[in-house]
Design a protein around this nucleic acid. Structure first.
Length: 267
DNA sequence: ATGGTTGAAGGTCAA
């Protein structure tokens, strides 16, 4: 048995913020770092910086300009081609097995879904629901396997995952159609939401604060969009006391609008 | 109902 630390961070351009990633890795020392919105092609990924950070094993799923996900690891990774959740050609899923017999990790970037929470009027919302539907099918069919599912799910499922439940009920990321579907697919896949295992349901927990605010700390209008889920059978290996939302990084120079979330598990 | 900011792009679009 050894303890490994997993972190997930929507970095909003890995090339622009490679220095911030290095700083975070130095401070938090994750063994596996899952990034979303790398916003570059595979060949543009700053691999040398990750080698220098001590995370040389990379599974990169990039594309030009938008989206893109990557897993950077201290340990060798075996890239997996499953699951596939995106109906378009977006790079939104990176999956790998850790080592030869280690757990399987899924790094997901769920579509944001646009502004109008109606699938008929808004193709982006339809895409988000389709992606979630594919997640539901996959995780229910694989509910007895052991998965680590992390990433920017672009949904804040519970009342205290947003700064104001009432104000955000019609805002994409917190509408009942999304939050209920996310909970159904999580439970159907026997997956545990580690943040809420580590904290009671009445505690406000956020991992994202909009750029569209002069001072993100002034009214703390955040949402919990970034998640770490573990399959039921391996959830007891989590050190719940180690679960951390790295809020301080939101105050760094040129920050991402998301902050990293991390957890230690025994493997 | 609208606007606010950011990144990649070198158009606006996606978030």
């Amino acid at each position: 048995m050894k303890k490994i630390k997993i972190a997930t961070w929507n970095i909003n351009s890995v090339r622009l913020r490679a220095g911030s990633v290095a700083e975070f890795v130095k401070l938090a020392q994750p063994d596996i770092l899952c990034l979303q919105e790398i916003k570059c092609r595979n060949e543009e990924f700053p691999s040398n910086a990750f080698i220098q950070m001590g995370l040389p094993h990379l599974v990169i799923r990039g594309q030009k300009g938008w989206h893109g996900v990557a897993i950077a690891s201290k340990f060798p990774l075996q890239e997996l081609t499953e699951p596939q959740f995106c109906m378009h050609e977006h790079a939104r899923v990176a999956a790998a097995q850790i080592g030869d017999n280690g757990p399987i990790i899924h790094n997901l970037y769920v579509p944001a879904g646009g502004d109008i929470p109606n699938a008929e009027e808004n193709e982006k919302f339809a895409h988000k629901l389709d992606f979630l539907g594919k997640m539901e099918s996959f995780y229910s069919a694989n509910k007895h396997k052991n998965h680590i599912v992390v990433g920017d799910l672009n949904i804040a499922p519970h009342e205290h995952d947003v700064w104001s439940h009432r104000a955000l009920l019609d805002v994409v990321s917190h509408t009942p159609i999304e939050t209920e579907l996310l909970e159904v697919l999580r439970k159907g896949g026997n997956l545990i939401d580690i943040a809420r295992a580590a904290h009671t349901m009445d505690e406000k927990l956020f991992s994202w604060w909009s750029y569209r605010s002069a001072d993100w700390t002034a009214n703390n209008r955040g949402r919990r969009l970034d998640h770490i889920w573990l399959s039921e059978k391996i959830a007891p290996t989590a050190d719940l006391a180690s679960f951390t939302i790295h809020r301080e990084t939101r105050s760094w120079e040129k920050p991402s609008d998301h902050v990293p979330v991390s957890l230690e598990i025994e493997v």
